[in-house]
């Protein structure tokens, strides 16, 4: 498990892959984002999406699933206050295969909590053609191996 000290700016990790099905897209949409282009192929065709597309929040949830399910790349996370600059760059469609990269772009020891530091990661989600479908800057609180 990686601690704050083990992570350097420029370090890049890769996660995945995950296959997206039409059933997954519709099931997520029914619970959290029941807009026509996330629920129905024909309704999607009538929009600029050109077909059924996943909710952007579904893509975000699938990205979380990939980030958290790789034991080799696990970090000593103490949670996250949020994220910045999330962009849904391309539609995610049934049959897409997603993978995720996460690159450390900034690390700051916490002044108020010596047992941890704050790391910003540029997270990119790609499809099978290596096109970025979503990107954001995640903010992670990560435990130190030893308190400073």
């Amino acid at each position: 498990m990686k601690h704050f000290e083990d992570i350097e700016i420029g370090d890049r990790m890769t996660f995945g892959s995950l296959d997206v099905t039409a059933d997954d897209i519709k099931r997520f949409a029914r619970d959290y984002d029941p807009q026509p282009f996330h629920m129905d192929e024909e309704a999607g065709k009538a929009t600029h999406f050109g077909g059924l597309v996943a909710s952007g929040w579904h893509t975000a949830a699938m990205t979380m699933k990939l980030l958290i399910s790789d034991p080799e790349n696990s970090v000593a996370s103490l949670g996250s206050p949020g994220f910045d600059e999330l962009r849904w760059r391309r539609p995610v469609r049934p049959g897409d295969r997603l993978h995720v990269t996460s690159e450390c772009i900034e690390k700051t020891p916490s002044r108020s909590r010596p047992e941890m530091g704050v790391v910003r990661f540029q997270v990119n989600t790609y499809n099978q053609d290596d096109e970025v479908v979503m990107s954001f800057v995640s903010i992670a609180m990560i435990a130190r191996r030893e308190a400073a």
Binding site: G56, P81, F83
Partner: peptide
């Protein structure tokens, strides 16, 4: 749809 989120905090 939406192009994105400027920032979000929990």
């Amino acid at each position: 749809g939406s192009p994105g989120v400027e920032w979000l905090r929990w």
